[in-house]
């Protein structure tokens, strides 16, 4: 584990030494903050409408502000994560530093866990940053704390799964753009997997809706944490990491 944490810390450091991480965080933060602001204003308008019907208690602050913001942040992460993960292996290969790692006494799994751990640390920072505007809302209102935490946790899990898919794509090609495109394609397909399911209604639709990222994430946003959704995200991450491990081992054989 020592080697993995060494790799993780270097990954995190190198992300922040390049403008990439800062830019991604700035873009993500600016857009989500703007969306959050829009949601809060929208809530105020709705509040006036509901007041006229005398049904204010039914208007959940969390549902109308925090949940949509986290939902939008997820879509943004869908676009951003492939750009963050595309360089995980490709850049090492392009710069030739891969030889120093591949000739070190490390198993493929240690290398992958190191890279992934570094990514998770970055994601933790990202989610913490997005929690700041959400936290501000607690100063002015009484959002549901449990639902908020569940939403933020869900966002972290979702992004972690995105990251594992991106890492797998990056391990499969030396070309960062190809890695980004493949990761984006796979994630988008998983995101919209339930579309067919909604129209169908047979056995396939059950499978497709289980595969869909959206439905699992939605549960977290409504404050429902259940093991099915947890297992789904962990499984997706595990599949990504194992695929990458397989790729690294095959690479040694295929050259």
């Amino acid at each position: 584990m020592r080697a993995a944490s060494t790799i993780a810390l270097r990954e995190l450091r190198s992300m922040f030494l390049s403008p990439l991480a800062w830019t991604l965080l700035a873009v993500l933060f600016a857009i989500t903050a703007y969306m959050f602001m829009a949601a809060v204003f929208n809530y105020q308008v709705k509040l006036v409408q509901f007041q006229s019907f005398g049904e204010v208690p039914k208007l959940s602050l969390t549902d109308w502000t925090i949940a949509p913001m986290l939902g939008n942040a997820a879509v943004l992460l869908l676009l951003i994560m492939p750009m963050l993960t595309m360089r995980l292996f490709a850049e090492e290969k392009r710069r030739g530093t891969w030889a120093a790692i591949a000739s070190s006494p490390l198993s493929p799994l240690e290398i992958i866990l190191g890279k992934y751990l570094g990514l998770l640390l970055f994601l933790a920072i990202t989610v913490a940053l997005l929690a700041v505007p959400v936290g501000l809302l607690f100063l002015f209102g009484t959002p549901d704390l449990g639902q908020t935490l569940s939403g933020l946790g869900g966002l972290f899990l979702l992004a972690a799964a995105f990251g594992a898919v991106g890492l797998a794509a990056s391990s499969a090609t030396d070309n960062p753009m190809v890695a980004a495109l493949v990761a984006f394609g796979v994630l988008l397909l998983l995101w919209i997997a339930s579309w067919v399911g909604e129209a169908g209604g047979n056995g396939i639709s059950v499978v497709l809706s289980y595969l869909s990222l959206t439905s699992h994430y939605q549960n977290f946003l409504t404050g429902v944490v259940n093991s099915t959704d947890l297992v789904y995200f962990l499984l997706l991450a595990a599949v990504g990491l194992l695929f990458a491990r397989q790729r690294l081992m095959a690479e040694r054989i295929n050259g």
Binding site: R10, S14, R95, G96, T97, W98, A99, A100, I101, S103, S104, P105, L106, S107, R252
Partner: peptide, 18 residues
């Protein structure tokens, strides 16, 4: 391979520099 790699040091054609 993991144990054996601990016994070697390798400089490839392009130095693996960060």
């Amino acid at each position: 391979p993991v144990a054996a790699r601990a016994k070697i040091g390798f400089l490839p054609e392009t130095p693996p520099i960060y």
